[in-house]
Design a binder for these strands. Structure first.
Lengths: 189, 189, 189, 189
DNA sequence: AGATAAACGAGACGGTACGTCCTGTCTTGTG
DNA sequence: CACAAGACAGGACGTACCGTCTCGTTTATCT
């Protein structure tokens, strides 16, 4: 393991910036280690020294700019869920955010290790925040006690993810609202 | 456009067989056009002449062996759904089927065109079969009239797909059953 | 062996014309069988049916437009030689004629058979015409009896060919005249 | 332009050795970049990095093993010339040396740049050595002052080259001697 | 006036080599 | 000793032609 102490923070930043820039500008096929290195003005070895795969660079580039998850808790479960789902659907509908998600998904599908990292670092916080919100609702009696909260969380994100990735339908506000209705029906007492 | 009439059916079959064999045997990274051509005893140009990308070859190889979708309709919606969901979960849990799905998903994420073809040829029939089964249930009054059947279908497959791809939980029979319970709750009158 | 009787004269002409046109227009590397066939609006097989190699097509294209060799015989050996050598040098200096000669030379170097044909059909008549002129001069006592006429002919064309192909000097009228002087010195009584 | 300082001398040698070996063993048509790379245990890019065309590799392979030109100067011009011409004729008559010369000639005819390099590196030293020998003879009065030494040199090599390439006659010792006689006649006072 | 058989255009085919690109490792100086 | 620079072996990419091989479709003889 390299002595991280010696690590050049400037190069690290340049690499992550370059990766983000390329992700934003070009096809994911053009986001190669060589292109990142060239763009960052960095030797390829400096990338290989600190990351094992391109996917890890991309992941780190994306996590770096991640904002902490804050879910609204107005007490009104339906309103809060609607806000969450609308925001999520809008995000997947946005071609720019969508492109990086797509990139990351490709990497995850070809590297189990990376998949784990993405899951734990990017995804889990998001999903657990929602789970916590649902738990609070359950305590208030807004959700039936028999409901499996993990399943409930997937009932929200699964359909959106599915529709986004397989393009089986439009990602609109109407869709978001319809989804919320069904999810609520599934967990209501 | 090439005169498809002149197409050599033997070569076509050899190519698709080779693609399937490689998909089954090796990492997707090793399923290259060159490997397929070599395995099929065919010139590379013969592949490029009839398919634009590797993904299209893989897609055609997979569609060729596809069995028509038959959904049970015993009249008992819960039983039928449980059977469907258990089978689907088992399929995604199977590493062999899973590998080709993973491969195809990677290709879809990097080629919109291919994504459309996969959706229309492989996915849509499956999803519509389920939708039809739900429509039948609705006519029998087993599903509330307000339910959006498209959303309902995604309520089934979305979570499975999500859990499979992001590995956020185990793909077991218990999970299948819990999912069925929630889906039913969502659409029941 | 094809029954030449059935041969389509129109196609034959189109092929030879196409070959000439390509020779004149492009690099010799682009003069491929496929290009000739496409240009001539002819199937590749029609070329392969009547010629064994590209070089033979080129040879036939060039021989077709060849004019019969006529050497001046004014009685004045020096004047006649000077005219011949100046014309030959000028021909090699002309980039257009030079290009086809270059092409043919390449083919000859990679095909002994073709080399023989070129020698016999294109070259020999030329060389023998010169040899005959020298023989006439010898009978008139303008050339010493000991002179080897074959060597003498090569004394004329060898240096020009050498200088053209290896670009060891300019192909000017002065050069032509200097060469004539030395050749005459070599064979004079 | 690559920093030649970083060049791997071992690879360079392996490539040139492989090229020579292939030239000696096989048809020139089989001397491909891929074959050279495979034989040398080298990536193709390593060849393309340092040479533009196959011809340049071949040229460098041939120049590397070139022995410095040493011409005899016994004072006897005729004897020295006879030795030189006999050796040259024998060399062209030798099928092994002839094959590489043929290969190089093909390359020269399709690449002006390479032609220049061959001329300057391989040919010129040889021709100038002969020119110098003739100059020495002229100073001794063995050659007439009016003789053009460049023309004289070509009077020697041109006919041999011509006869070799166009196969217009045998390359024997008798031919060598006849040629020497005529060349001497051309330049003698 | 058919019949028939070869030549024809078109272009698919199995191959070979091309020249480019990227991978992940190794090497060479610089700070 | 991390770094930039970039050479290296390897190997896939997609393209261009090779020479052979069907396809149907003209033609040109020969019944």
């Amino acid at each position: 393991m390299p002595a991280a102490a010696r690590r050049n923070e400037q190069s690290r930043r340049a690499i992550l910036d370059a990766a983000l820039a390329l992700l934003a500008e070009t096809d994911y096929a053009k986001v190669t280690i060589e292109a990142i290195a060239a763009r960052a003005g960095v030797g390829k070895q400096t990338i290989y020294r600190w990351w094992r795969r391109k996917g890890e660079v991309v992941l780190e580039a994306l996590t770096r700019q991640q904002t902490p998850v804050v879910l609204p808790d107005s007490g009104d479960l339906e309103a809060d869920l609607r806000e969450l789902v609308r925001a999520t659907v809008a995000e997947f509908a946005d071609p720019r955010l969508s492109a990086t998600t797509r990139a990351l998904t490709v990497e995850m599908l070809s590297d189990d290790d990376l998949a784990g990292q993405v899951r734990d670092r990017l995804l889990r916080p998001q999903l657990e925040a929602v789970r916590d919100r649902l738990a609070a609702a359950r305590e208030r009696g807004q959700i039936r006690t028999g409901a499996d909260l993990d399943v409930a969380v997937e009932l929200i994100f699964g359909p959106i993810f599915h529709r986004w990735q397989l393009r089986t339908g439009p990602l609109t506000e109407e869709y978001a609202d319809a989804l919320v209705d069904h999810v609520l029906a599934a967990v209501r007492p």
